[in-house]
Design a protein around this nucleic acid. Sequence first.
DNA 1: ATAACATAAATTGTTAACAATCTAAATAGA
DNA 2: TCTATTTAGATTGTTAACAATTTATGTTAT
Lengths: 227, 227
Amino acid sequence: MSENPELMIVEHVLDAVADQRLQAGTKLGEQALCDLFSCNRAHVRRALATLAAHQVVDLIPNRGAFVATPSEAEARDVFQARRAIEATIIRNVVRNANATDLTALRAHLEEEDRVRSANDRSRAIRASRAFHMLLGRIGRNGVLEKYLSELTMRTSLIIGLYGSNRASLCDDDEHSRIVESIVNRDEATAQSMVDMHLRHIESEIDFNKERPRGGPLSVLIQPTVPE
Amino acid sequence: MSENPELMIVEHVLDAVADQRLQAGTKLGEQALCDLFSCNRAHVRRALATLAAHQVVDLIPNRGAFVATPSEAEARDVFQARRAIEATIIRNVVRNANATDLTALRAHLEEEDRVRSANDRSRAIRASRAFHMLLGRIGRNGVLEKYLSELTMRTSLIIGLYGSNRASLCDDDEHSRIVESIVNRDEATAQSMVDMHLRHIESEIDFNKERPRGGPLSVLIQPTVPE
DNA sequence: ATAACATAAATTGTTAACAATCTAAATAGA
DNA sequence: TCTATTTAGATTGTTAACAATTTATGTTAT
């Protein structure tokens, strides 16, 4: 646990949020983080400021830091923003994807298949997000990739809060059909498939079924599965 | 200069960058900021962490904080991201704009006219950005609005670095024609006008004409003109 | 005069101590 | 038994001091 402790904390919190190990509303106490990452409070505070800038953490004066709990309105904005951003990303992907990229996409689909049959929910969530992030990487626009990273994390919080049971993960079949249209260099189809895919995910959310928020912090240390 | 000094610093730096008062590469020394905002270094450091998270500041270990200097590749990504985001924003605007919003848009056009005839470059830059931010507000998607805010600031840095003389500000006529199509509820036209407008701005950039970077910090305190 | 080196100043990084605020527990009163 | 108040503990906010590193200055030798 050496290296820059500040980045360490940020990365681990983001990872835990993305994997839905850290629930919305969980308190991120300063001393607790100091202990977990064996560093001093100055590091923790700067890390929390960074996380707050990414909208993953709410900073409440004199109360502390909490994992953000997106409202219904915010959730709708996040999904619309994802449609806007991923529309351009998928266009870039269809245009730029080379043989290596296509191989990576196929490999990912196999991984998703494997994970699904293994019935490992945690890995499934991870893999679902990884697909979208893979598209982001192949799209070769660092700005959009970073925004997508933020938005997928906020999506994780939203699904954790309001998602129905099956809504938790992307439909593998939709992913594979997206890859298919990428292989075919069919821009229009790829774009509409991604748009529908995102609307599908959003549709399986029920804002009346708010779940209990807050949870343990220990999940932060869970070794990051190397994908 | 009371109130939360952290937000104070962030806001002032962002404002100065947006107005092109703060040049790319300018060093943001901790003690200098402490003096300017009469606070301690802990505040300054957290503010710099926040600014770094927004990609407006580069944090170099043991060297300090510097206003970011976007590369050519980053500049292209920023403009593509703007097209992606503002396309959705303008669609929202055409759909959502009510009478009050239209009045605000017309008032803004008049302000731009006034500023142009006054030949006040500083206010002109401010007004140009304000137009896009006004669209962002009327679009009523907080996520996209925030991203647009970040991207317009990075655009300011890019234009400050590589922009030709006239490229510094938006063409007022293009703005007024965008408003016209909003009034007409002509979604397709509005969208293509915004897209062309952004491409126009990008086209007036010359990456061979890199300008000297770095500058004074005193500009930070310049009283924020209330628009 | 220039380059390399040594020294001094300034800047960033780190840590600890103290103050202010909030949370929770315990006590007292209705 | 329940509510209100007080008290103790824990947590966040603030500040200062010290260490490590970098930058600037000045000296010496070629």
